[in-house]
Write a protein that binds this DNA or RNA. Structure first.
Length: 199
DNA sequence: TGCAAACCATAAC
DNA sequence: GTTATGGTTTGCA
């Protein structure tokens, strides 16, 4: 049995799917219905589920963590995610993306270089990320610092990035499992965003 | 700048 | 097996 939990923080509905003592998916949106719909999207069509109001501790922590990331604050605690149901490559990508610090972004190609595979494959992994925004796929953008895409809508992606602005100026590298990943200040994206289109 | 061709894991047939 | 499909990238006119 899959259990679904949704909770409203300041007009945003955060939801978590819980199965076998583990968190298998999450979603957020402006309406309760939509959040539940997204959660259901991530589970097999005919699996039984129920919506529950009293979440266990781990779920509650996840909900709070989601809210924290959503608001652009620095995340303190790590949430335990179960990714066994995901394809191996997707898992590698998601684990790498998880290490992108607040205030920085990277590109699909850069992620690809650090975990193997190609940029488009990384894009696919992002598109199927069940753990947004905890796994910060919003911090992955095009190589030219264009936005790229976002399943939840590009506006949300921009909002999240704006809130994560930290005033960094230089790129840097972070250690991931078996390599390094270049990350760049989120400002690079925001700046390019406001460059006026030329007439 | 714009377009075409390479790129690569997954899901769907 | 094979094909189709992207939240890409790069090169070249």
């Amino acid at each position: 049995m899959i259990e679904l939990y949704v909770k409203n923080f300041r007009h945003v509905w955060f939801g978590v799917a819980y199965q076998n003592q583990g968190i298998t998916g999450m979603a957020f949106s402006g309406s309760e219905q939509e959040s539940i719909r997204c959660l259901l999207n991530g589970i097999p069509y005919d699996s039984p589920f129920q919506i529950i109001s009293e979440p266990p501790n781990s779920v509650n922590e996840a909900l709070v963590a989601m809210k924290t990331v959503y608001e652009g604050k620095d995340t303190a605690e790590k949430v335990q995610l179960s990714m066994e149901h995901l394809p191996p490559y997707t898992r590698r990508v998601l684990n790498a993306v998880l290490l992108i610090p607040v205030g920085y972004v990277t590109s699909y190609g850069a992620v690809a270089k650090s975990v193997g595979g190609g940029a488009r494959a990384v894009g696919n992994a992002m598109a199927s990320n069940p753990f947004a925004p905890i796994i910060p796929c919003h911090r992955v953008v095009s190589s030219n610092f264009g936005l790229g895409g976002y399943s939840g809508g590009l506006e949300i992606k921009v909002e999240l990035l704006k809130r994560e602005k930290r005033g960094y100026e230089k790129f840097r590298e972070v250690q991931i499992q078996n390599g390094q990943l270049q990350v760049f200040p989120v400002e690079f994206v925001l700046k390019q965003l406001e460059t006026p289109k030329k007439e």
